[in-house]
Write a protein that binds this DNA or RNA. Structure first.
Lengths: 102, 102
DNA sequence: ACGCGATATGTCGCGTGGTGACATATGGAA
DNA sequence: TTCCATATGTCACCACGCGACATATCGCGT
């Protein structure tokens, strides 16, 4: 699981979104310091769909075609597991890296 | 910063090691569930040397050539910063992913 | 009426870097 | 003396992030 993919899942964990909305949400999450390029985003979305971690979400037939996505049950499970993994790794890293230098 | 690279730095943060030792240490860190392939390891070591995050460490002229490495000051700084980044991201991810499913 | 920036979705080529297979050599133990 | 752990490395393949480019609409200000 790469970081861009994690950020996409995290964005969809809050609520269903369409592509551009994910882009903006990730920017907010990273306080403007993080940006997903569209190449990264739409590539990731395609892979996530194929893996069954996200699915198309029928938004109320709005104006121009907005393809909204949401997490599947499997996607939620995967995300939970990944976050758990991160917690372990971060804890380990904190211990290991804390070797008396500023 | 990719995960394999992080694991290498974490391994060297504890003490200077040579390649094979890093491999074994990472396996211990991941409780046997994580393995670094030699391709990943030696590729990463070359890059880390070029970046100046690690350096060769003169071990007491042991038997067969063992190339020991240790973190440079810069490497330690980078690792600290990365761990800090992980802490933020993990915190964010924990909040976002905690949406009422098991 | 016009233009421009935000909204919105997508493609493509480049380069980085992880992966597994393969290669090779030595030390020590059964 | 055979075999496994120790030890270091290379190579081809592939996945994926990234930036540039392409395109279309909406709404607002002038």
């Amino acid at each position: 699981m790469t970081e861009p993919v994690l950020l996409v899942l995290l964005s969809l964990a809050e609520q269903p979104r369409h592509g551009y909305s994910i882009l903006k949400d990730v920017e907010r999450m990273g306080h403007g310091r993080v940006t997903l390029s569209t190449g990264t985003l739409y590539g990731a979305l395609q892979r996530l769909l194929k893996q069954g971690w996200i699915e198309r979400f029928k938004e109320d037939e709005a104006a121009r075609e907005r393809r909204a996505y949401r997490l599947t049950v499997q996607g939620k499970r995967v995300l939970q597991a990944e976050v758990e993994r991160m917690r372990h790794l971060t804890k380990l890293a904190s211990l290991r890296a804390a070797r008396k230098e500023a």
